[in-house]
C-alpha cells in the first residue's frame, strides 16, 4: 500500500558514513502522526546521499510502514535498519506532504 501513497518517493540512502545523521520528530499519538525529518547532519549518510530534506515525512523504512507506530518504535526501526549488516543501504519511502 505504501507505493500507492500520493506523491511519495523512494529514497535509497547508502551507509556511506558511521552515522545516519537525521533527527526525527513525531509518531502515533502525537501531533505529528508520522515521523518528520527535522535535522540533517552534515557528514552523515543522509546528508551524503543528498536526497533527504528537512520537512519530509517518512512513510516506510525498508518496506515497513511507520503508520500507527509510536515515536520510539519508529526511531528503533530506523536505527536497526542502519545498524544491520544485511544491507548496505536504507530505503525510505518519503512524502513532502504532512
Amino acid at each position: 500500500p505504501g507505493l500507492l501513497e500520493p506523491m511519495s518517493t523512494l529514497v535509497r540512502v547508502p551507509k556511506s558514513a558511521n552515522t545516519l545523521g537525521i533527527a526525527i520528530e513525531g509518531g502515533a499519538n502525537t501531533r505529528q502522526p508520522l515521523p518528520r525529518i527535522v535535522t540533517i547532519q552534515r557528514g552523515g549518510s543522509a546528508h551524503n546521499c543528498g536526497q533527504l530534506k528537512v520537512g519530509q515525512v517518512i512513510l516506510e523504512v525498508n518496506g515497513i510502514s511507520l503508520r500507527g507506530r509510536e515515536h520510539r518504535e519508529a526511531a528503533c526501526l530506523i536505527a536497526e535498519a542502519f545498524k544491520t549488516k544485511e544491507k548496505e543501504y536504507i530505503d525510505f519511502l518519503i512524502t513532502e506532504f504532512n
Binding site: 552515522t19 545516519l20 545523521g21 537525521i22 533527527a23 526525527i24 520528530e25 513525531g26 509518531g27 499519538n29 502525537t30 501531533r31 505529528q32 527535522v38 535535522t39 547532519q41 515515536h71 520510539r72 526511531a75 530506523i78 536505527a79 542502519f82
Partner: peptide, 15 residues
C-alpha cells in the same frame, strides 16, 4: 481537527 490539537508534541530523536 480539535482532537488533533489535544495530542501532545513529539520528542525528537537523533539517529
Amino acid at each position: 481537527r480539535e482532537k488533533r490539537l489535544t495530542l501532545p508534541p513529539s520528542e525528537i530523536t537523533l539517529l
